[in-house]
């Protein structure tokens, strides 16, 4: 990780010095364990604020939307796929970007680590293949691979799919991953069971919209829940409104979601709303063989028509 950090700083320093970019978007050290803060660097002297470790789970493609300057952006596998999606959807131009690719070894699941710890976690140290979790009166070491975010554990695109610089050699991609075990479990439920499952899943939601706002796909100038003329969705804690928000948001991500996990990571209430987007991701893969953000040359399935598009559900 230190090697990654040094390399990111070197590249950023060079790009800024040569005036190839105006801004570098990356991460700086957070004030909390397992938290880094997205930041921008404009000055060569500030380059050493940039860092990289297993706590860079926020998707930086989110910070590129509609920018007009020349930017270097640090991108792990999923970020790079969202950058591709951004380019395809005309939210940024390829020529504006210098992509600093980071072969990713997965991000730490801060929620799970906190929940497993016997007390408040005050320090988490990554040490090669293990993670040391410390707090008042305890210190525990876990294998790093067991402490990854759920989306990282089943990730099959850890290496950036598009980049101008790479901070290290590509990492081996995970093989024989069962990506959709959780989705299949829900698919096997009856309609009534599904309803109850989602009802319980969404019960803690406070409608802070952290999931939506952390998502690079959610860039609509005005989200449907924020429309006021007419107002489509109520503003209260009524479950009908909460549910409408989550279901519709997920549909808007169909065929676009890269399963970067930012939504779950951002949620202050610990809701696993990825089950919605994953189901749609699975459909896109099974119906059209589509995985979002892998290529600049292919149009997404939902904005193209092919005579052989599956239509078994039509009568």
């Amino acid at each position: 990780m230190i090697a990654y950090t040094d390399k990111i700083r070197d590249i950023a320093r060079r790009l800024l010095k040569d005036c190839r970019v105006e801004t570098v978007i990356g991460f700086r050290n957070g004030s909390m364990p397992m938290m880094n803060e997205p930041c921008f660097i404009k000055n060569v002297d500030d380059v050493d604020h940039l860092i990289w470790d297993g706590n860079c789970g926020i998707n930086l493609a989110n910070y590129l939307t509609n920018r007009t300057d020349k930017i270097a952006v640090v991108a792990k596998g999923c970020d790079s796929r969202n950058i591709v999606t951004h380019i395809i959807e005309n939210k940024i131009k390829r020529e504006q970007l210098v992509i600093i690719g980071v072969p990713c070894k997965g991000m730490l699941d801060k929620r799970r680590i906190k929940a497993m710890a016997p007390g408040e976690v005050t320090r988490v140290v990554e040490d090669g293949e293990s993670v040391r979790v410390c707090g008042a009166g305890f210190e525990k070491t876990y294998p790093r691979k067991d402490m990854l975010q759920a989306n990282c554990a089943v990730c099959i695109h850890r290496n950036p799919v598009i980049y101008d610089e790479l901070v290290a050699d590509p990492v081996p991609e995970q093989q024989n991953v069962d990506r959709y075990e959780d989705v299949r479990a829900i698919e096997a439920m009856s309609a009534e069971e599904k309803w109850t499952y989602f009802e319980n899943l969404l019960a803690p939601c406070i409608r802070c919209y952290a999931c939506r706002n952390a998502c690079p796909l959610c860039y609509c100038p005005t989200c449907f829940v924020d429309e006021s003329t007419p107002q489509w969705v109520g503003k209260s804690q009524n479950p009908v409104d909460v549910r409408t928000f989550h279901f519709l948001r997920a549909y808007h991500c169909a065929g676009r979601c890269t399963d970067c996990g930012s939504c779950e990571r951002a949620c202050p209430m610990g809701i696993n709303m990825r089950v919605f987007t994953k189901k749609l991701e699975k459909e896109a893969f099974e119906q059209w063989g589509w995985e979002a953000g892998l290529s600049l040359d292919q149009r997404p399935p939902l904005d193209t028509y092919r005579p052989d598009d599956p239509q078994d559900f039509m009568k």
């Binding site: 309609a191 009534e192 309803w195 499952y197 989602f198 559900f313 009568k315």
Partner: peptide, 10 residues
């Protein structure tokens, strides 16, 4: 998502 089968048609 738990909507009754038979309510949605295409």
């Amino acid at each position: 998502m738990g909507v009754e089968p038979g309510r949605v048609h295409f």
